[in-house]
Simulated assay, not measured.
Amino acid sequence: MQITFPAFYKEFSCIAGACPDTCCAGWQIMIDDRSLKKYRHFKGAFRNRLYNDIDWKEQAFRQYDHRCAFLNEENLCDIYSEAGPDMLCDTCRKYPRHIEEFEGLREYSLSLSCPEAARIFLSRKEKTTFVTIEKETPEETYDDFDYLLFTALMDTRDYLISIVQDRNLPMELRRHKLLACTHDFQLALDKNELYQWEDIRARHQSSGVGDTFLAKIQKWTTSRTDPVTYRKQVWKAVIPEMEVLRKRWRKYLHETLLPLYTACDSEEKFTSCCQEFLAACPDWTIQEEQLLVYWIYTYFCGAVYDDQIFAKIKMAVVCTAMIHDLAVGTYLANDHHFTFYDLVSICYRFSRELEHSDLNLNEMERLMDEDEIFAFRNLLLI
């Protein structure tokens, strides 16, 4: 079995009570069968607490005021302190470690929804790299696993990440190239012409972002909706379809985006605000790169199960753009002041609403695939 993980993966260590937004609050924590059995047969004074504060029917910890029943006033876990670390359920023991499973390969990452993981990830200035090791573990066989497609996806992902990490290019051109490549890959897969992928990749590598490519981009983006109107349409398309996990989420979006779209009611004003934000927060370009790499690494190869190549890259671009808008909105709302920890907060809050709901992830991907708002030429406006 091969195991792949980001080079910084092992830097993570839970900061427990010092966490600014504990993972033990805000959503329901499900309990695996093995842990439920351990809780049911636990001996000692803590047994009654376990029995009373577990919803055995739902297989979840009870919540009080949206906090896990075992989360104490110091934001520490009573199960950990009273029963020991071995009594943590799978969810609590593994989080924020995220695993994507494929035949012969497991890919590990740190979830952006964890404040400490987000801090580690966003503070990195160097390009993200990945480590692959061999580990002796029982391998599972997946029925109908398309290994040929998976190999093509792995090779393609390497190329896509190299595009995103090409710091010789402006980020706008990296995004355009990313979208153009995956648009072509998706067309080939839809036609059952997987054999063309190497030729497509070679063509894009040789053409780069030269005059021919730039002319096509210019042609595709002529006489269309202005970028400010388009970004508003993106929010209006996505948010009403999303399940709300935290009560204040939509109020937070309103309070953060209103200053942005009030101040930036034209393309010129929006561009000016973005340039001012970038001047005040020069690390944003690298952080944008890291965010794109995060979404691509975590989700792209999952297309082996659903063929949704382009939708996954669209989601990467759109999610990063939405985080950008929240960052600029926060900058304006805070009287032109923005800190690194403001960005960390935006990212983990956004991730918690999207990535901790299968319904939201599935709906986001459906929108990317079906809604005309997210058509290729429209996304070039971001």
Rank of each mutant, 00 (worst) to 15 (best):
Q2V: 04
T4R: 15
E11N: 11
T22H: 05
M30G: 04
D32I: 03
S35R: 12
S35Q: 13
R40A: 14
F46C: 03
Y51A: 14
D53W: 14
W56P: 01
W56V: 01
K57W: 05
R62G: 03
R67N: 07
F70K: 06
L71P: 02
E74K: 13
N75A: 08
L76T: 04
E82L: 02
A83D: 09
P85V: 03
C89G: 01
T91H: 07
P96I: 13
L105M: 10
L110G: 03
S111A: 14
P115R: 10
A117T: 11
A118P: 08
S123N: 13
K125R: 12
F130W: 01
F130E: 02
E134H: 11
K135P: 00
K135T: 10
K135V: 08
E136H: 10
T141A: 15
D143L: 08
Y147V: 04
L148W: 11
L149K: 07
T151G: 05
A152K: 14
M154P: 00
T156N: 10
E172D: 12
K177R: 15
A180L: 11
A180F: 09
A180V: 05
Q186G: 05
Q186Y: 03
L187N: 12
N192T: 02
Y195H: 11
G208F: 09
V209K: 05
D211M: 13
L214R: 15
K216F: 09
W220T: 02
W235R: 11
W235I: 07
I239D: 07
E241L: 06
R248W: 07
W249G: 01
R250E: 13
H254D: 10
E255S: 11
E255T: 11
L258V: 06
A263K: 00
C264A: 15
D265G: 08
S266M: 03
K269H: 08
F270C: 04
L278F: 09
P282H: 06
T285G: 04
Q287Y: 06
L291S: 04
L291E: 00
V293Q: 08
Y299N: 12
F300C: 00
Y305R: 06
D306Q: 07
Q308E: 12
Q308S: 08
F310S: 01
M315C: 10
V318S: 04
T339E: 13
D342T: 06
C347E: 05
L354W: 09
D358L: 10
L359W: 14
M364G: 13
E372S: 13
I373A: 09
N378Q: 14
